[in-house]
Design a protein around this nucleic acid. Structure first.
Length: 273
DNA sequence: CCTTGAACCTGCGGGC
DNA sequence: TGCCCGCAGGTTCAAG
């Protein structure tokens, strides 16, 4: 479900409604997510107030008073929503933060690739999940130069390169295809054979595609919703992702699907070189 | 270091 | 109707 735009939409939808709330307790029904949920999580966060919500890569960061941050990652199928008091437990609801108001923040994740843990806020960057993360694509230091620099000495196809979180974070399988389409670059092109001007164009495309997806409330293919349970609308704006066999919106050629490192890639053979 | 492939898990839709 | 297959938005680890 979630790439950077979806997590950002989740963050901004939850922020105004949960900041200032106190977490009363944590309840888990199933601790076996991608990594086991720590037994000490409840003790660590109970009684603390939510000060703000941030995002790093595809991680949602819930900063609490006292210098503690709850880290939530949604994996492939996770949803994190605010539900009213006494809302019945849903299938695959593995964990919930019970708030003082009675409402709760519910993590529902059928495939259990998600992740929840707490860390000292000032030590987040040193955590193994964050230490090797690359640049934020919507931040000031993301540009063609930084992509070109990261590509030096490498030969991987550019689609795989875009998915590598040590280079740039937050770009997942949907937006990698979309950004390459916008930039006119063939997904199989080796990063060793990309000109400087095309790196610039790609950086601009990544930014534009992500920003536009955020504006549209994210992409809802099956189950993405924001914190209030509302779906996104960017799926109608997708140019190539999921459109195998359809006409390219730019040149009319037939959109193709190929497989790269076991993931589908969609591209237009007419526009992308 | 780089690259690739397998692994983790459940659900859904298509084909027969 | 029911079964089997392929497919799904992410990350990590091992092996070459």
């Amino acid at each position: 479900m979630p790439e950077l735009p979806e997590v950002e939409v989740l963050r901004s939808s939850l922020e105004p409604v949960v900041v200032g709330e106190r977490i009363e307790r944590v309840r888990t029904w199933n601790r076996s997510l991608r990594e086991p949920v720590s037994r000490g999580l409840g003790r660590r966060v109970a009684g603390r107030r939510i000060e703000r919500l941030r995002r790093r890569a595809k991680y949602l960061l819930i900063d609490l008073d006292g210098g503690v941050t709850v880290v939530v990652h949604l994996g492939m199928s996770g949803r994190f929503t605010l539900v009213p008091s006494r809302a019945p437990r849903q299938l695959h609801e593995h964990l919930a933060l019970f708030l003082e108001s009675g409402r709760r923040l519910r993590l529902r994740d059928p495939r259990r690739f998600g992740l929840v843990f707490a860390r000292a806020t000032d030590r987040l960057d040193a955590d193994r999940h964050f230490r090797h993360l690359g640049v934020e694509p919507l931040g000031a230091d993301f540009d063609g130069a930084c992509l070109a620099r990261a590509a030096r000495g490498r030969t991987a196809p550019i689609k795989s390169f875009l998915l590598d979180g040590r280079v740039v974070v937050g770009v997942g399988n949907i937006y990698a295809s979309e950004a390459l389409f916008r930039a006119g670059i063939h997904p199989r092109r080796s990063v060793g054979r990309v000109s400087r001007s095309r790196w610039d164009r790609l950086a601009e495309s990544v930014r534009a595609v992500l920003a536009s997806a955020i504006e549209q409330g994210g992409t809802t293919l099956n189950d993405f919703t924001d914190g209030a349970g509302e779906p996104g609308y960017f799926q109608v704006s997708l140019s190539v992702y999921g459109r195998e066999g359809e006409g390219c919106p730019r040149c009319g050629a037939t959109v193709r699907r190929i497989v790269q490192s076991q993931r589908s890639t969609f591209y237009c053979p007419g526009c992308q070189r």
